[in-house]
Nucleic acid binder design. Structure first.
Length: 431
RNA sequence: UCCCGAGUAGCUCAGCUGGUAGAGCAGGUGACUGUUAAUCACCGGGUCGGGGGUUCGAGUCCCUCCUCGGGAGCCA
């Protein structure tokens, strides 16, 4: 007799099989009893008729509690009334892992309680659906770059003092060398690798000790960062729109069942096709003023501004050439307007806001050094990074896409903490 | 860090101008032959976040601390 997974039951209609999994719910009406079982691949309903089974089996069923691990044996039958479309007429049932007082009941719970029980909450249908969409997004990202000859370069997580703002770094003791910091970005290393391999990307966890408390921030999040030799800022935006369109398209195409489970209306996602509209920062400020925002030139776009602007378009929008003061030191000065830099953000629609920050990098040694000094950073720490401008400097561009923000947008989540299995936030380090 | 809001049964919440605590679900027992968060009946379940104060009397009013949630700034 075959031992099968729930997703494979369709191939075994009429046959007797064994399925292993966990109890979702049980229902009994005295003469007939139902058991919903999950195994990670889907749900199946088991049915027991009182007069067709022996007393011992009936008793074992009566003792089942939520999340008990068990192995059931029965005949597979297609039945539209059952969740999943198939049923098992049970002939045997063996408890392999008892479970008493499972904390997450089929009723409502508060977010705080749920995140304290995140290790158990992951088993719920909704969380399983999100995990599968995330998995698809990650695979789509890797496939996209693989197909375009990008080389994956894994950048270090432990770094010396290098990155963006020192105040946002997590630090730890590092032998006799003083402090090490958890990486906030792989970009600077990615630039070095781009000079070796041409097109590269890194993809891993990044860490920001910002004391942010919003639906868009985690202290540990995953970021994918391509870096391309000889791409200018326009090439960079073209890569971004192709990339985002591909990733969203893959999720819609292959994870329709999960998105339905999440009650995600996919029509806004189906409109995500390159090219994306582009608006300069200066034009965006003017447009925002006509839309009622009181933003002034020189200030960064706030969350409300992003939402307001994104609402004007039916797909993600690029805002490019920001004032240099609000952007990082490595962005290349705009030769046509030195008040600005050749960087762009990509804003997702439906209020999700910034999912990408990208730029053409400053490739001029003297300008880069001047920017490092002007921002109060230690030029000593950036010695190796400056070397990239001393030995065959080159036009290059790249960007960073936040994985959890992207998954939250695709899934239609109200907070990105659900987009990762074990979110890290200011007030949450467990489980 | 700042601005709001909330901590009452295992969970989600109600509890009026102060008078010593309530529901649904979960759990237990029983009934029911097709249930979909099954339904129905009954039962058990509480240091009202901690500390201090006002009062004859505080879940309720005041002070303080803690925890959590939402938002801002910053960013992906």
């Amino acid at each position: 007799m075959a031992t099968v997974r729930i997703s494979e039951l369709g191939e075994f209609v009429g046959q007797q099989v064994t399925v292993r999994g966990w109890v979702v719910t049980t229902r009994s009406s005295g003469k007939i009893a139902f058991l919903v079982l999950r195994d990670g691949t889907g749900l199946v309903q088991g049915v027991l008729a009182r007069k067709e089974v022996d007393d011992a089996l009936w008793e074992r069923f009566a003792g089942l509690t939520q999340e008990t691990a068990l192995a059931v044996t029965g005949t597979v039958r297609a039945d539209a009334r059952a969740p999943g479309g198939f049923e098992l007429t049970l002939t045997d049932l063996a408890v392999t892992g008892p479970s008493t007082d499972f904390p997450i009941t089929p009723k409502e719970h508060g977010t705080s309680y749920l995140f304290e029980h995140r290790h158990l909450w992951l088993r719920s249908r909704r969380q399983v659906a999100i995990a599968r969409v995330r998995h698809e997004v990650v695979q789509a990202i890797r496939d996209f770059f693989y197909a375009r000859d990008f080389v994956l370069v894994d950048t270090p997580i432990l770094t010396g003092s290098i990155g963006e703002e020192a105040g946002n770094l997590f630090s730890t003791d590092y032998f006799d060398l003083g402090k090490a910091y958890l990486g906030q970005t792989g970009q600077l290393y990615g630039e070095a690798a781009a000079a070796a391999l041409g097109r590269i990307y890194c993809f891993g966890p990044t860490f920001r000790a910002e004391k942010s408390k919003t639906r868009r921030h985690l202290t540990e999040f995953w970021m994918v960062e391509p870096e391309v030799a000889f791409n200018d800022s326009d090439d960079n935006m073209r890569l971004q729109e192709d990339f985002v369109s591909y990733v969203v398209g893959r999720a819609v195409e292959r994870r329709g069942a999960e998105l339905r489970e999440l009650e995600r209306d996919t029509s806004p996602l189906e409109r995500v096709q390159a090219p994306f509209p582009r608006i300069s920062y200066t034009d965006a400020v003017a447009k925002l003023n006509t839309l009622g925002s009181d933003i002034t030139w020189g200030r960064d776009l706030g969350g409300d501004d992003e939402t307001l602007l994104a609402r004007e378009y039916d797909r993600p929008v690029f805002v490019f050439n920001y004032p240099r003061e609000v952007k990082a030191f490595y962005m290349k000065e705009n030769p046509d307007d030195p008040r600005t830099v050749l960087g762009n953000d990509c804003l997702a629609p439906e209020g999700y806001g910034e999912i990408i920050g990208g730029s053409q990098r400053e490739d001029d040694y003297d300008r880069l050094l001047a920017r490092i000094v002007a921002q109060g950073l230690d030029p000593q720490a950036y010695g190796w990074y400056l070397d990239l401008r001393r030995y065959g400097t080159f036009v290059h561009s790249g960007f960073g896409l936040g994985l959890e923000r992207t998954v939250a947008w695709i899934c239609g989540l109200s907070h990105i903490r659900e987009a990762i299995a074990f979110p890290r936030q200011i007030h949450r380090l467990f489980p």
